[in-house]
């Protein structure tokens, strides 16, 4: 069962003269077990949209459905929805509060009514999933950890609730390249092995080009384009991407430049590995003289 958003409108300070429209009729679907990249510049409405997906902002009736449940219906069970849709905010390490890592990570399960033993078991599992050995970390203070470790603890705090959907707002912001790659690898692993649907919000198109099955491009509160990464990041949408101030992945830029110089590169090439093999193949053909030089 998917998350369905149907024609969602929202304005901050709604109903007053200073209303600021944030979402203007957004419709989208997040499939069960899907890896979706949600991209868009600052102010596109990404963070606002996320808060509707787990009922932090209550949508109008009939606009947001999680596994068939209307989040806007009166008396909707929002705590069940928040368990199913795990939301990881930007800089999630800023929400850590407990004296020990274990206490912090088990906060979510305890709120859901798990017994102390059950909460502990789930917290340990979640810590192991994010790559922190529970035996080494659980009794330490979260504030004594490095920034990257703190972020993992915060992520574990959401995973311990056992979500079916994981929604992350700029999870790699402020991480170094290695930390960034590790975190994205972790998300891919959660998606592949646990079957968790991942919604990755970012303005780094590289991240979603490499990992997402589907990309949704949001601009000024509207869905501008949606589809497989090769499609959304294809030449057709480049002007829209540039207009929104988003950088096309370097590999795709290279393909554009080579094509301009007359290289024959078939297909939608946005992923690094595809680009490398396509360029290598084309270079071999050119070296063999099978293709017009200097065209």
């Amino acid at each position: 069962m998917p998350i369905v958003v149907r024609d969602l409108h929202y304005a901050y300070e709604g109903g007053t003269p200073v209303a600021v429209p944030a979402l203007r009729g957004v419709s989208l679907t997040i499939g069960d077990g899907e890896f979706v990249g949600l991209i868009g510049p600052m102010g596109a409405g990404k963070s606002t949209l996320l808060q509707f997906l787990n009922g932090l902002l209550v949508p109008p009736p009939g606009t947001v459905f999680v596994d068939g449940q209307d989040l806007g219906a009166p008396g909707a069970n929002l705590s069940a929805v928040r368990q199913r849709v795990g939301l990881v905010f930007q800089y999630p390490e800023h929400q850590l509060f407990a004296e020990t890592v274990l206490a912090d990570v088990s906060f979510g399960p305890r709120n859901l009514g798990a017994s102390p033993e059950e909460a502990r078991r789930r917290a340990e599992e979640a810590l192991a999933v994010v790559g922190l050995d529970p035996a080494l970390y659980q009794d330490r203070s979260p504030f004594a950890l490095s920034g990257g470790e703190q972020r993992r603890v915060a992520l574990a705090g959401v995973l311990a609730m056992g979500p079916r959907y994981l929604v992350l707002d700029e999870p790699t912001a402020g991480l170094d390249p290695a930390g960034r790659r590790d975190l994205l690898d972790l998300l891919s692993r959660l998606h592949r092995q646990e079957g968790i649907a991942v919604v990755l919000v970012t303005h780094h198109l590289e991240d979603v080009a490499e990992r997402a099955q589907r990309v949704i491009l949001l601009g000024r509160g509207e869905v501008v384009a949606a589809g497989p990464p090769g499609n959304v990041l294809s030449a057709v949408h480049r002007p829209a991407l540039r207009q929104l101030g988003l950088d096309v992945p370097v590999a795709a830029q290279l393909v554009d430049e080579l094509r301009r110089r007359g290289w024959q590169l078939p297909g939608e090439l946005v992923q690094e590995a595809d680009v490398v093999s396509a360029v290598a193949a084309a270079a071999r053909r050119r070296a063999a003289g099978g293709e017009g030089h200097g065209a």
């Binding site: 808060q51 928040r82 368990q83 939301l87 905010f89 929400q95 509060f97 709120n111 959401v158």
Partner: peptide, 25 residues
């Protein structure tokens, strides 16, 4: 919002559990 996303209930329970709910905030 972040703590609510982790299932925190701020408006439920007696005065003691309400006061305790403020710690994570």
């Amino acid at each position: 919002k972040a703590q609510k996303a982790r299932g925190a209930e701020l408006e439920r329970g007696g005065p003691i559990s309400r006061a305790r709910a403020l710690v994570p905030i």
